[in-house]
């Protein structure tokens, strides 16, 4: 493991987001703030409490996850797609880098960005609605695990797509709908039974549930099963990335 190599990639990626701070941080924070204004303060005050949790607070974990999941995928995908597109990937390929170092550099940077974003959103949310975190360690751990595994997913997307337009397909056509339908804004048992059953096939349901448990100590499943599920997902991503590097697919000619 060479620290200088990882650091070089990491720094390059961070410099890119600092240059585009408006897009990478301000935009998602603003979008989330708008959700809180509309759903939290305006509509939320007319909504019944869910369990004993005010509606505005209830949506905090789900909205945070929505931003973290989509931004993790987007950021990591963009990070590796960019050099593939510009041709700068030649340098990565010609360098004495192990796949692990490349992944640590790109995915590490995407994870840090997502964690910073999550912190910014949680602070913003606190301005609009009251909430406390029941299990701070678990909240951090689950958030980190989500950021890591979805950044890995983004990395895979960035390695496999062959056009700018396809880059946003996964975050906006897959992650966003799954998160909206994954109980970010409602509790599953508010749904008709058929939809409840369908929702069980939505993996994001378990992430939202686990994260909300860390906040409010209420759960519809077992949070430890949720975490195990996340770890399994991460493992699958790691295996896929390993396979991509072993075969040189879409990297080498």
């Amino acid at each position: 493991m060479n620290f200088y190599s990882i650091h070089a990639i990491f720094r390059f990626e961070m410099a890119r987001s600092v240059r585009t701070l408006m897009q990478s941080l301000a935009a998602p924070v603003l979008a989330t703030a708008l959700y809180f204004v509309v759903f939290g303060s305006a509509i939320g005050s007319r909504m019944a409490e869910i369990g004993s949790i005010p509606y505005g607070s209830f949506i905090v974990p789900g909205l945070t996850l929505l931003a973290v999941l989509t931004q993790s995928v987007s950021n990591a995908a963009f990070g590796i797609y960019m050099p593939r597109y510009s041709g700068a990937i030649y340098e990565i390929l010609s360098a004495p880098l192990s796949p692990t170092e490349i992944v640590f550099g790109y995915v590490g940077a995407a994870v840090v960005k997502s964690m910073v974003l999550a912190a910014a959103i949680l602070i913003t949310a606190r301005v609009f609605v009251p909430y406390e975190v029941a299990h701070p360690f678990w909240a951090f751990f689950i958030l980190l695990l989500c950021a890591v595994s979805f950044s890995m997913l983004g990395f895979i997307v960035g390695l496999c797509v062959d056009g700018w337009d396809k880059l946003e397909v996964v975050p906006s056509l897959v992650i966003t709908p799954l998160t909206f339908l994954g109980g970010s804004f409602y509790s599953l048992n508010m749904l008709p039974p058929t939809w409840q059953t369908i929702s069980l096939f939505n993996p994001v349901v378990y992430l939202v549930d686990a994260f909300r448990w860390a906040f409010f100590d209420v759960t519809e499943f077992n949070p430890m099963v949720d975490v195990a599920f996340l770890l399994g997902f991460l493992l699958v991503c790691i295996v896929i990335v390993g396979q991509i590097f072993r075969t040189g697919y879409r990297l080498q000619h």
Partner: peptide, 11 residues
């Protein structure tokens, strides 16, 4: 240029 040097694992 600094990036390139780092990438190759050099201090």
């Amino acid at each position: 240029v600094r990036f390139s040097r780092g990438l190759f694992g050099k201090p």
